[in-house]
């Protein structure tokens, strides 16, 4: 068959997500943010939430998430996304509110807001992009930087005597009674992308069904900050990050919720 015979609308098996905007993303080549943005856009589209979703953008690399995913957005102050989401969600129970934060935003300056939104069981989706570094400000150590990792503020590698231990924030929020679903995912392979999307979808379904807080950590790369090619960054993540941040569900009390039981009205 010729290329022209294959490339026809009826043969299309993968499209650019409808709710991903035309804007070029400002992320560095190979950044995990782009993949997770696509998954969030696909899930919002597939669940018919285009007119109901409210995203809360963080401060950090994904500060401009609102330029890429086509739904309503509020840009939060550094670390405060869960507080904004709490109010937006309580005042607008007909909407579905999600936060999208990096590990510096969520697990350092915003730790209190994170923990309290989770323990109150706000009916929101929280997405954490954990690449163990502050990307936007130039690759400084974050609370989730693993031991030994070199960053701009731990140039000889993170040491416990100087910097303490990496914060496993998903394990922390899994202990809180307000969370219904806590999972740790990645997007470095096709299989991982499929699983991550299923996790994000489950989280949104939980929010629609008002089951409590769903927390999806995506262990991610920062090839610029780690000073590696995207391919090497994926390998380094597999070999080093996953030992500290093993993938899989950490908590799931939302089981049994089927997509078909949820009424999603399209406008």
């Amino acid at each position: 068959m010729t290329r022209e015979e294959i490339i026809r609308p009826e043969n299309k098996v993968y499209s650019r997500p409808r709710l991903i905007d035309d804007n070029y993303m400002h992320y560095c080549p190979g950044c995990s943010h782009g993949v997770v943005h696509k998954l969030v856009a696909e899930v919002i589209d597939e669940l018919g939430l285009e007119d109901k979703a409210i995203g809360i953008a963080p401060v950090g690399c994904s500060v401009f998430a609102y330029n890429y995913i086509d739904c309503d957005w509020i840009e939060a102050a550094h670390g405060r996304a869960p507080a904004l989401a709490t109010a937006a969600s309580r005042l607008n129970p007909q909407n579905v509110v999600f936060t999208y934060q990096g590990d510096g935003d969520l697990a350092a300056i915003g730790t209190a807001e994170t923990i309290h939104a989770c323990t109150r069981g706000e009916n929101i989706v929280m997405i954490l992009i954990n690449n163990g570094i502050y990307g936007m400000t130039g690759g400084q150590m974050s609370p989730c930087t693993i031991l030994g990792a070199k960053t701009a503020t731990s140039p000889y590698g993170r040491r416990t005597d100087l910097n303490g231990f990496p914060l496993k924030v998903s394990n922390v929020v899994a202990l809180l009674d307000g969370t219904c679903y806590v999972t740790r995912q990645a997007v470095h392979t096709v299989q991982a992308v499929r699983k991550a999307k299923a996790a994000i979808k489950k989280a949104f379904l939980n929010a629609i069904a008002k089951k409590g807080t769903s927390f999806v950590e995506v262990v991610s790369t920062c090839s610029s900050g780690w000073k590696m090619t995207p391919e090497k960054a994926n390998k380094w993540m597999e070999e080093n990050m996953f030992a500290n941040y093993p993938l899989g569900d950490i908590k799931d009390t939302s089981a049994g919720l089927e997509e078909k039981t949820v009424e999603v009205k399209k406008s």
């Binding site: 098996v13 650019r16 782009g34 096709v190």
Partner: peptide, 12 residues
């Protein structure tokens, strides 16, 4: 699926 910039579309 792994493309972060959503530049690829696929036909089969």
């Amino acid at each position: 699926m792994v493309c972060p910039d959503a530049c690829i579309e696929v036909y089969r």
